[in-house]
């Protein structure tokens, strides 16, 4: 519990530090509003259109692949801590678990889901 309290205090102080720094700079800096300052910065050139547009489906596929293997990693942690006490049975089960997902990964590879066309 104490560790979380430390983390919470750290977070609060982080927010307080950022807020006080911004407040201090607001008090010190000169104010000169200009519409050009609110332009989207795109490495110098003027931005064309806006960012509110449909993105390629491929991004979703990558995100989903990431979610699947992130969940797998989350399952690996408690298994890795406990497998020594369960023995071969646990190893076989994890091989099955990872193997099934490995099949999905191989399928993604075969269907060229990981490539930009």
């Amino acid at each position: 519990m104490h560790a979380y309290l430390t983390a919470a205090m750290f977070t609060l102080m982080g927010f307080a530090f950022v807020a006080s720094t911004l407040l201090l700079s607001r008090l010190l800096r000169p104010s000169a509003p200009n519409p050009d300052k609110l332009e989207t910065y795109e490495c110098g050139p003027l931005p064309v259109g806006d960012a509110w547009q449909q993105f390629n489906m491929h991004y979703y596929l990558f995100a989903l692949l990431f979610v699947v293997f992130d969940v797998e990693a989350a399952f690996l942690y408690p298994w890795a801590v406990a497998y020594k006490q369960v023995g071969l049975y646990a190893v076989v089960e994890m091989i099955l678990f990872v193997g099934l997902l490995g099949f999905g990964w191989a399928y993604a590879w075969r269907r060229k889901a990981l490539e930009w066309d």
Partner: peptide
């Protein structure tokens, strides 16, 4: 938790794998 996953809840554990595989494919 790890022990429960591979012993008592082994079937849901493997079913989760199948579910993830289905979503992926």
């Amino acid at each position: 938790l790890g022990k429960a996953l591979v012993t008592r809840y082994a079937l849901p554990f493997e079913a989760a794998s199948v579910l993830l595989l289905a979503a992926l494919i």
